[in-house]
Amino acid sequence: MLLIRCPYCEEERPELEFRNAGEAHIARSPNIASESDDDFEKFFFIRSNPKGIIYERWRHMHGCARFFNAVRDTVSDRFLMTYKAGEPKPVKLPGAAK
């Protein structure tokens, strides 16, 4: 079971309290109704599924109930960092070399 730091509660809590919510930093267009089929396909269907670093959304379902973002290494299953929803994609990742 993973230990995940909720950036709102500011503490590490067991995975049981959280729910994964898919890839992060995929913004819904404010003009979604006029989006082309290709753009809508990219927005709605296409996901990166990387081996390595993934940016993903989690929800502290059984805690503060907030959605937040996390950086996880899909190989080691290690969480490198978590940050609040709406914050920019981090450039520098702590502990990535570990």
Partner: peptide
């Protein structure tokens, strides 16, 4: 409820 919270928190904050 989850669907509504998701949009409220992340798309329409």
């Amino acid at each position: 409820m989850n669907h509504m919270e998701d949009y409220l928190q992340t798309e329409f904050p």
